[in-house]
Nucleic acid binder design. Structure first.
Length: 489
RNA sequence: GGCCCUAUGGUCAAGCGGUCAAGACGCCGCCCUCUCAAGGCGGAAUCGGGAGUUCGAUUCUCCCUAGGGUCACCA
């Protein structure tokens, strides 16, 4: 066997792409990449009842958006296809027959009703599971019954005594008594393999060297090993991952908030930020680095950095990663993200200068992409009935009366400015403050309130006025002046 | 309930016998400042409990406790 590391992401198209799945895919991808190996995509569609339309497309789209490029898969082929389990049915059947022939599996004719009755009867007992009713049927007789059309499943014949142990790359040595293991179903009566069986067969066929999956599979791993042994296949390296929990310590689910990749993207999170957060949720680089691009992850990732304890998904920290990624973007690229909302607010096309300014204003303040419109809301129009109390600011030493005076003084100067540029407006206002012997805030505050009508804006008076344009700025000053005048008389 | 896994601040976590127990998010304060952010500086906050082993346990062992996982013709 070659020493090339091969991992696979094997989702089943039964729903949206959960962040837990995505994190598994990321780790699988990284384990392969960090050692120059291959990352395989395999679709596990053995549950015909739970197929969800569109789920497959979502898987491809998510992988694509995240940059987790696979080397082999249903869409691009590869040497060990097909990569869709429903296209490999014959093969599983043959493999199951092999096991029967070797005495490692047997046909079981128990009905669903009988099994249900069994479960009901076993409630509270220590060993719950199949009672091995068909385990000792004569193989030839069983084969004949099956051939005659009697529905049956194929079960794995577990050893009744002894122990099975395996070494997991993150959890270490794990030992389980064989008496704990159920004679699990390998092939269902509809001819489809179960997940456990198809997994082993496919992982072997596809030369997967590292089986990476959630720790919920930890306790069923001994069954896998027994299967590998029954086949005489080499056992892969297991890498079990700690689970992701919600705020309440329960397994992360919809009720904790958005848990699907698509949902998060729609909520304004960047794929880079989501991936970055997921990377650190269960893995540590060992140093204090926190921001990782995919390329950087490919350099830094180590299996030994994986954590064993479950991690709580923290939306607050995800938000911080999102902000960090947003701030780190090239200003031009960030500005482009603002174009749509800016033009909506403006009601017309934006100039390059306006776009640049808007980007500069929002980039350090944005938490999510979806917040852009709200950040630009002040641009739309001056709220007609904003609270005049906003003019009163203790630290700035301003109030409605002083603001009125200030605005009256400022108005003419602004109207007379040679050009309406950020620099010029800025210079003018600073000069005005100096001239009047007041602090900058005493001219900036009233102006900002007068033209925005808001206590909080994504920028100061200068930026606001610049983006508003001279005409609109003066119009808003007049509007505010009118209201301020009405206060007195 | 049986079995398996886990256990450092509210959260993610470094630590791998001797540390004043990193760092980050969040929180609080200060600075900067035309508001809010961003940025800078500082602060509060952690080894679940009990036995061992050892000169010395956060670190090793055992027990307890707590949390999680798993016991399907689902993956």
């Amino acid at each position: 066997m070659s020493g090339t590391v091969r991992t696979r992401f094997a989702p089943s198209p039964t729903g949206f792409m959960h962040v837990g799945n995505l994190r598994s895919a990321l780790y699988e991808y990284l384990i392969a990449r960090v050692s120059g190996g291959q990352f395989v995509l395999r679709i596990e569609d053995t549950d015909q009842k739970r197929q969800v339309p569109g789920a497959l497309e979502a898987i491809y789209a998510t992988l694509e958006q995240c940059g987790l490029q696979h080397d082999e898969g249903p869409d691009i082929g590869g040497p060990y296809g097909p990569y869709v389990q429903s296209e490999r049915l014959e093969h599983y059947r043959d493999e199951a027959e092999k096991l029967i022939a070797g005495g490692h599996a047997y046909r079981c004719f128990c009905t669903a009703e009988r099994l249900e009755y069994l479960r009901w009867q076993q409630e509270g007992q220590s060993f719950q599971g199949y009672d091995r009713h068909c385990r000792d049927l004569d193989p030839d007789e069983a084969a004949a019954r099956a051939a005659a059309g009697e529905p049956c499943v194929i079960r794995q014949r577990m050893p009744l005594e002894g122990q099975t142990e395996f070494v997991d790359a993150v959890y270490g040595r794990i030992t389980v008594d064989n008496s704990e293991l159920e004679d699990q179903i390998l092939l269902k009566s509809d001819g489809f393999p179960t997940y456990n069986f198809a997994n082993v067969v496919d992982d072997h066929d596809m030369h997967i060297t590292h089986v990476v999956r959630g720790s919920e599979y930890l306790s069923s791993t001994p069954k896998y090993n027994l299967l590998y042994e029954a086949f005489g296949y080499e056992i892969p390296t297991y890498v079990h991952l700690p689970l992701i929990l919600g705020k309440d310590g329960q397994k992360l689910s919809k009720r904790h908030g958005a848990t699907g990749f698509t949902e998060l993207v729609e909520a304004g999170y960047l794929p880079e930020a989501i991936l970055n957060y997921l990377l650190l949720l269960g893995w540590s680089p060992g140093d204090t680095e926190e921001i990782f691009s995919l390329a950087e992850m490919e350099q830094a990732f180590t299996i030994s950095g994986l954590s064993r304890s479950p991690a709580t998904f923290d939306y607050g920290k995800l938000l911080w990663f999102n902000q960090s990624w947003l701030r780190g973007e090239e200003p031009e690229q960030f500005a482009r993200r603002c174009r749509g909302a800016l033009e909506d607010a403006l009601g017309r096309e934006a100039t390059d200068a306006e776009l640049e300014l808007a980007g500069r204003m929002l980039q350090p303040r944005l938490e999510r992409l979806t917040d852009i419109p709200a950040q630009l809301e002040w641009l739309q129009e001056l709220p007609e009935d904003y609270d005049l109390g906003l003019f009163t600011h203790k630290k700035m030493k301003t109030d409605a009366a002083s603001s009125r005076l200030m605005l009256e003084r400022l108005r003419a100067g602004l109207a007379a400015l040679e050009s309406w540029t950020e620099e010029e407006i800025h210079a003018f206002l600073l000069a005005a403050a100096k001239e009047q012997g007041v602090k900058n805030g005493q001219v900036m505050w009233p102006l900002r309130i007068a033209i925005s009508g808001r206590s909080v804006t994504p920028g100061g008076a200068v930026e606001l006025a610049t983006l508003l344009g001279r005409k609109e700025t003066l119009r808003r000053i007049d509007l505010s002046l009118d209201r301020l005048a009405g206060l007195r008389s």
